[in-house]
């Protein structure tokens, strides 16, 4: 069975986390590990946010953004889907994904720009 025809595994965020709030980095890490493990096995993953009442970027950075540090864009695109998000939360996710792609393509760029800052007068 090739990857395209494998049945997708659905990860329900609210069930995995045991609550309906996606607001902490720790919970984001938990969802990331569950998702990354399945993608590493070549499985299709659907992350479901059904029943989630609150979602913030800090959570999504850890849960979804971090995938781009472990997998290529093609791998993420071909193995991951999300469902159950309101359109404004999808927009939030899009911002997180764009930020993650930039971050992992040049993680040290800002460091260089700001490492020379030496304007202490306090």
């Amino acid at each position: 069975m090739n990857e395209q025809t494998m049945p997708a595994v659905r990860l329900k965020a609210a069930e995995i986390l045991g609550n309906d709030l996606c607001i902490s980095s720790e919970d984001g890490q938990t969802l990331f590990e569950a998702t990354a493990s399945l993608i590493s096995e070549g499985k299709q993953v659907i992350v479901s946010f059904e029943g989630v009442s609150m979602l913030i970027s800090l959570f999504l950075n850890a849960a979804i953004g971090q995938l781009y540090g472990q997998f290529t864009e093609n791998q993420v695109r071909s193995h991951l889907l999300v469902e159950g998000l309101a359109p404004d939360d999808m927009e939030l996710l899009r911002g997180v994904v764009e930020n993650a792609k930039k971050y992992y393509s040049r993680p040290k760029e800002y460091d260089k720009a700001w490492a020379v800052e030496g304007d202490d007068e306090e």
Partner: peptide
């Protein structure tokens, strides 16, 4: 600034204040 974070765990961040 968007994307600026002091996280040390090789994770992207820096969207909260921008949003």
């Amino acid at each position: 600034e968007e994307g600026h974070t002091t996280k040390t765990n090789n994770q992207p961040g820096g969207l909260g204040l921008k949003l």
